[in-house]
Design a binder for these strands. Structure first.
Lengths: 229, 229
DNA sequence: CGGTCTCTTGACACAATTCAAATCGTGTGG
DNA sequence: CCACACGATTTGAATTGTGTCAAGAGACCG
């Protein structure tokens, strides 16, 4: 068997979890696993051959590059997330690994056939798509009106929630999956502003920086208030 | 029959277009048409009873309100658009009519049953959801890095495209569906900046204002260049 | 050790916001 | 029909948050 679904770390939560084991095996026969190193690209905006994929481990970013070469991160993809624009003739955005990542990839045609054949898969992808839409709109809300400080506080809050196992609880300490530059891109700020505001959040006692990427939460309530949500 | 699908203005393009006429009639029996006047709300963030709907005529906005009462417009809905968060226990955002609008509404439970029963409907909604996701990410890209001028130019360009029949052609003149305040909310700007930049775009010869809401395109190419896309 | 990256910090400029006031348009009631 | 009030828009002046430019500090690697 090409794909080791039995040992898949996201077999409970990914879109394919809704399939029966026979259906899943049939789909697995068409797919293959792939590993990306940090910075490696899954596909680029404009690709006609853009694959679809489920993320098993690691993290990806979805980003757009404007005419002047500025990057804007549009979304992060976490394990069990699905990547791929099903009905578009070509990809609209770049997808790049943030950390070493393992994926389960499929040709678009194979996924499209599976969506036709297995209604449960269509529903699962619909659910996931709606969740992605919600996430995108949340980011939109964040970058719309809020100050640099509030955006950063909200992002840190989200990361703390994502780093903890239970979704309603915050991790006390965690590693930022993004560089300063990537945080800046995501929030529509500059590297310098991110760095300054992180310093200010530390001075206020909301967080404490631990090395370049580490963050420890000192005052989660304060952080939440600063984020204004 | 409750719903006059036969005379529906979006019967070709809405999600229900993929159903057979028997299936559509069955679904129609569960729905009902509704008219909203400008400013009327379809449902509010937090509603548990949030209906689902297809927009027949008019325009809606999807918006979030933060703790300080500032509104942020997250998306516009055009005719044939589908509204409703299928898998969430409650609505996350407000949905309000921008102009007098006619909708075809369904209870969430009825839509969910139809999605189970008619695989083609699930696929159609998946397609629509992906399109919404793309639109949301485009707006995100726009509000992320661009200057006030570029945001406004891009929005005007989009409206010109939306106002024309063919999607690849721009309307020479059209009415803004939004007030200045709503444009400002959508682009993450203030009313004053929007007003000023509109004046500047007019001075440059890119557009011409016609009354409060009317816009005539003078130099679509210039407008596109200013938008930086 | 030198080279390259990422991050931090400072000084300054500027675009957009804020505050304030004038103008326009529209509907209402006398 | 006019006078008036009210909301939406425009315009002006002053302020400020972020971006820009520039330089320096750490970390990592060959």
């Amino acid at each position: 068997m090409n794909l080791a679904c039995a040992t898949c770390p996201v077999k409970e939560s990914a879109a394919c979890a809704v399939l029966t084991s026979e259906e899943r095996d049939a789909l697995a026969a068409a797919g293959r696993t792939r590993t990306l190193k940090r910075g490696e690209m899954l596909f680029a905006a404009g690709d006609e051959e853009a694959a679809c994929a489920t993320l098993l481990t690691g993290a990806l970013k979805v980003s757009a590059v404007d005419v002047e070469g500025h990057e804007q991160i549009l979304a992060l993809v976490h394990p069990a997330g699905f990547i791929g624009e099903l009905f578009a003739p070509f990809a609209h955005h770049d997808v790049v690994a943030l950390t070493e990542s393992r994926l389960c990839t499929f040709a678009r045609a194979d996924i499209e056939r599976a969506v036709e054949e297995y209604p449960a898969l269509a529903r699962a992808l619909l659910r996931r798509s709606q969740a992605d839409l919600l996430a995108s709109r949340n980011l939109l809300e964040l970058t719309g009106h809020a100050s640099a400080e509030a955006r950063l506080a909200a992002l840190l809050h989200d990361f703390a929630a994502a780093a903890s196992d239970s979704s309603c609880h915050l991790a006390q300490r965690f590693e930022l999956p993004l560089t300063r530059g990537e945080i800046a891109n995501m929030l529509g700020l500059t590297i310098e502003t991110v760095s300054r505001k992180l310093g200010e959040l530390e001075d206020m006692g909301a967080i404490q920086r631990e090395g370049k990427r580490g963050i420890a939460l000192r005052d989660p309530v304060l952080l939440h208030e600063i984020s204004g949500r």
